[in-house]
């Protein structure tokens, strides 16, 4: 089955063509990210207008790169939520139009299911059940994944997402965007153990995350550090970056491992933009080599928002006979627990 996946849930317009839910023929992302942005954030000229401008060329390019025509497609998968309503509408209505005109089955996809299943676009993929950590600018959540369509949320951030903390700390430092890459690079030169920033483990059994206290702590520390910089203080900005990053990584790994133990599974998946963080990966691979756990990651281009992961999710839904009818609407809120479980595996 050849599936076209479309995602317009946030800033990026993306489309990908995937065979059998695993083999990527193309993955095209029209990104709004501009480096060194003065305000330290994504430039969302985005919204509906940008998506509207981008959607046709992006889909056309995805089909061209995959060397398939509309008539070759067995299905179209499109993100219907969660996300910004105006942005989601562009993707959904375009997909509906294609589906209707070319008479191709349509699948309505939850963006978070796309992230959870993005790891199946890799040759090395986990087997069910596993625990997934999706960690990005907008999300920090833990899921117990029993099978396709069966996702139980075990924890989530109660304030800021981890990726958001990276971006905001980069802003506090007066550095550019994207914050994750900027902080990671700076942290390589710094000492991780020089400043003890708080680690919010919350209550003993909690699998929830909190990063706003850490952000505030880094902000106050940086302010004080700037003021007394003239004094003979050997702390440099890279030390603050490294200590901050270590605090985030400590908490992410602690909670991920706790969730894994709770469910008694050996395999874990880390997906989303922050999964690209080198320090997180090296710490996890150390854990993996010393114990009997196995960690899976999608490659960076499948970690950020993309159409290929939506196509992968769509493949399983269409394979099981799920069809979205043309009256389908977008959902700004859309918990993955609302999804239909796909019982048998293809």
């Amino acid at each position: 089955m050849i599936i076209l996946g479309i995602d317009t849930s946030c800033d990026d317009t993306s489309a990908g063509v995937v065979v059998g839910g695993t083999r990527v023929l193309s993955n095209v992302v029209q990104s709004q990210v501009k480096l060194h942005h003065p305000h330290g954030g994504v430039v969302p000229e985005l919204a509906s207008r940008e998506h509207l401008k981008n959607i046709m060329p992006v889909v056309r390019e995805a089909l061209q790169k995959a060397d398939v025509r509309m008539s070759d497609l067995d299905g179209i998968a499109v993100t219907v939520g969660p996300g910004l309503v105006g942005s989601l509408l562009v993707g959904l209505y375009y997909a509906k139009g294609l589906s209707y005109v070319h008479d191709i089955p349509l699948a309505a996809i939850n963006h978070l299911e796309g992230h959870i299943l993005s790891v199946f676009l890799e040759e090395e993929a986990p087997s069910f059940p596993f625990v997934a950590l999706t960690v990005s600018g907008g999300h920090t959540s833990l899921y117990y994944v029993k099978g396709y369509g069966s996702y139980t949320q075990m924890g989530q951030t109660i304030d800021d997402a981890a990726g958001e903390a990276f971006d905001k700390v980069a802003k506090i430092f007066g550095l550019g965007y994207p914050g994750g890459a900027v902080i990671e690079k700076l942290a390589r030169e710094g000492r991780r153990d020089i400043i003890k920033f708080p680690r919010a483990y919350l209550s003993k059994d909690s699998l929830d995350f909190s990063f706003s206290g850490l952000k505030t702590s880094v902000s106050l520390y940086t302010k004080k550090w700037r003021e007394k910089k003239k004094a003979n203080d050997d702390v440099v900005l890279a030390d603050i970056a490294a200590s901050f990053q270590e605090s985030v990584v400590d908490v992410l790994i602690h909670k991920l491992m706790k969730a894994r133990e709770e469910k008694g599974v050996e395999e874990v998946v880390v997906a989303g933009g922050v999964a690209c963080n080198g320090r997180l990966r090296s710490r996890l691979s150390k854990d993996a080599s010393s114990g009997d756990i196995k960690v899976y990651y999608p490659r960076p281009e499948y970690c950020t928002d993309n159409g290929a992961m939506i196509a992968a999710a769509g493949y399983h839904r269409l394979f099981h006979g799920e069809r979205a009818d043309l009256s389908m609407d977008v959902r700004s809120k859309y918990p993955v627990s609302d999804l239909l479980t796909l019982v048998s595996e293809p």
Partner: peptide, 9 residues
């Protein structure tokens, strides 16, 4: 849980 809307707007 009310979380930061920075990314979702």
């Amino acid at each position: 849980i009310i979380t930061s809307p920075t990314f979702s707007l």
